[in-house]
């Protein structure tokens, strides 16, 4: 029996259109054998949560560069919990200052990838931590 590949939603919330990072990560995860759904731009937290449920993903990667992460990320986490997806691994990538990381992790983010993170680090983290029992 072959195990189902890891399914990841790469999500781009907020008004920002900088999608270079999100698309590169999506492609790297796909090249690493994962099934990747890219949300497209400017998705609300509600749209992202609905997609996570409908696509039955194991992980959500949120790309955010605009500085709105403290408002947007906790809301996505709350919605995922509210629909029984607390087991879904949530990682965040983008321009996240050091001092915001602890708060994001407390809210349930598994890892934050700051500028300069390699694709390999991101792929390995998701491979190692997705589908773990919550």
């Amino acid at each position: 029996m072959t195990e189902r590949p890891i399914r990841v939603l790469v999500a781009k919330p907020g008004l920002d259109g900088h999608d270079r990072g999100a698309k590169i990560v999506a492609r790297a995860l796909r090249d690493a054998g994962m099934e990747v759904i890219y949300s497209g731009l400017r998705q609300t937290p509600e749209q992202i949560a609905v997609a996570a449920l409908q696509e039955d993903v194991d992980a959500v990667g949120i790309s955010i560069l605009s500085g709105a992460h403290n408002t947007i990320v906790p809301r996505i986490l709350g919605l995922l919990r509210g629909q029984g997806q607390e087991h879904v691994l949530v990682v965040v990538g983008g321009i996240i200052p050091d001092e915001d990381i602890a708060e994001l992790k407390k809210a349930g983010v598994a890892e934050v990838f700051q500028p300069g993170a390699s694709m390999q680090q991101i792929v390995e983290f998701i491979r190692d931590h997705a589908k773990e029992p919550a």
């Binding site: 907020g14 008004l15 609300t44 605009s66 500085g67 709105a68 408002t71 947007i72």
Partner: peptide
């Protein structure tokens, strides 16, 4: 800022968290 670039006023729902940031 991003709301202005996207044609939303600062009090629009989608502007939340983004006003004056970029």
């Amino acid at each position: 800022d991003l709301p202005t670039l996207m044609g939303y006023d600062s009090d629009h729902l989608l502007a939340e968290g983004e006003v004056g940031k970029c």
